[in-house]
Structure formats: structure tokens, C-alpha cells
């Protein structure tokens, strides 16, 4: 499994990650981010794209 961290001090709700993987990342009514914290290895490509496309470099993955 891959662990997903988002630094909420950095996140500005651009929604890049939501566009890349809407099942793993969501924005709520107030545009606050929520995400799946443990993700199957099969989704590594999506997670890497989210990490590399986040304008705030707020996403970090581990494992």
C-alpha cells in the first residue's frame, strides 16, 4: 500500500489531484480537500501524476 499525505498548510484547493483521481481525492462544499490515506500499489501512476501536478507541491507519497 502507498501512504498519501497532504500538507494542509500548503493546499490551496486547486483540484488538480481531484481531476486526476476523483475516487482518491475530493473537495467538499467549502472546497476543503479530503483524500484516501492508504492506496493500492496499482494506482501509483495516478498518485505520482497528482504529486507532480499539484501547484503547491502539497502532496507526498510514501511506500
Amino acid at each position: 500500500m502507498i501512504k498519501v499525505h497532504i500538507d494542509l498548510n500548503l493546499c490551496q484547493s486547486h483540484g488538480e489531484c481531484v481531476a486526476i483521481a476523483p475516487d482518491l481525492f475530493q473537495l467538499d462544499e467549502n472546497d476543503f480537500i479530503s483524500w484516501q490515506e492508504e492506496v493500492d500499489d496499482s494506482r501509483r501512476a495516478d498518485l505520482e501524476a497528482a504529486v507532480n501536478t499539484c501547484p503547491m507541491t502539497a502532496i507526498r507519497i510514501e511506500g
Binding site: 484547493s13 483540484g15 481531484v18 467538499d28
Partner: peptide, 12 residues
Amino acid sequence: VNAARRLAWYRR
């Protein structure tokens, strides 16, 4: 404007 969640829908 201040509507990030909605923009995700338009991207699709």
C-alpha cells in the same frame, strides 16, 4: 471564482 470543487466537474 472561489469554486474549485465545481471546476473539477467542468474538467470532465
